[in-house]
């Protein structure tokens, strides 16, 4: 039987690294919102609402990471103000802000019809980075835990580049051709995801 004891000197400070990762996640969220939103699309209200929603999700998602997990202390003897603050913190912890940010940013990007495909590709890469930063801050883990996922992320980014390249090619005229190109890209992604053995080999 093998027993492993953690090297205490190598253990990171319990609060310094999560704070840094949470800050990185907040910066990535702000960058994604700005990248997808600027310039604010059209005179319609949809763009403004989406921008507000994305910004709110970015701020509150970062606040959720900064708050950390529920402390688990008794609230029986808290004064009403402190209890209200705790209830607010619980609400921030309960809502999946990151998911809201993802949807809002992607829809914002989709509203800009004239953008080049590489613009969307960069946004996709930034969103993936944001998701991993959120996960690291949330689970208070070191970046080394993502090592098994690196080949998959690399393959996924490769597919993203292929999709962007396919979109950048001059398309055949007609809406049917556009639809076929999209469906082909979707199929390529799904088949690639299901078939590629990269990273799934048991180590």
């Amino acid at each position: 039987m093998t027993t492993a004891r953690q090297d205490r000197s190598a253990r990171p400070a319990p609060s310094a690294r999560p704070a840094r990762t949470a800050a990185a996640a907040g910066l990535l969220a702000a960058a994604c919102v700005a990248w997808a939103a600027v310039p604010v699309p059209g005179p319609g209200i949809a763009g403004d609402v989406l921008l507000a929603a994305a910004a709110a999700c970015a701020v509150l998602g970062t606040a959720r990471l900064a708050l950390g997990p529920e402390p688990g202390e008794s609230r029986t003897f808290l004064d009403p103000l402190a209890r209200a603050a705790q209830a607010g913190a619980d609400l921030i912890r309960a809502v999946p802000w990151a998911e809201g940010l993802l949807v809002a940013v992607l829809v914002l990007e989709a509203l800009h019809r004239a953008r080049p495909p590489w613009h969307t590709g960069l946004l996709g890469a930034a969103l993936i980075a944001y998701l991993f930063a959120v996960h690291l801050a949330e689970s208070r883990a070191a970046a080394a835990v993502l090592r098994p996922q690196v080949p998959l992320i690399a393959a996924g980014l490769g597919l993203l580049v292929l999709a962007v390249g396919a979109a950048a090619l001059p398309a055949a005229t007609g809406s049917t051709a556009d639809l076929m190109a999209v469906l082909a890209a979707v199929a390529a992604v799904v088949v690639g995801g299901l078939a590629l053995p990269i990273g799934t080999v048991r180590r």
Partner: peptide, 9 residues
């Protein structure tokens, strides 16, 4: 199609 690429990873 580029949005499908966003979903790829």
């Amino acid at each position: 199609p580029e949005f499908a690429g966003v979903a790829a990873p």
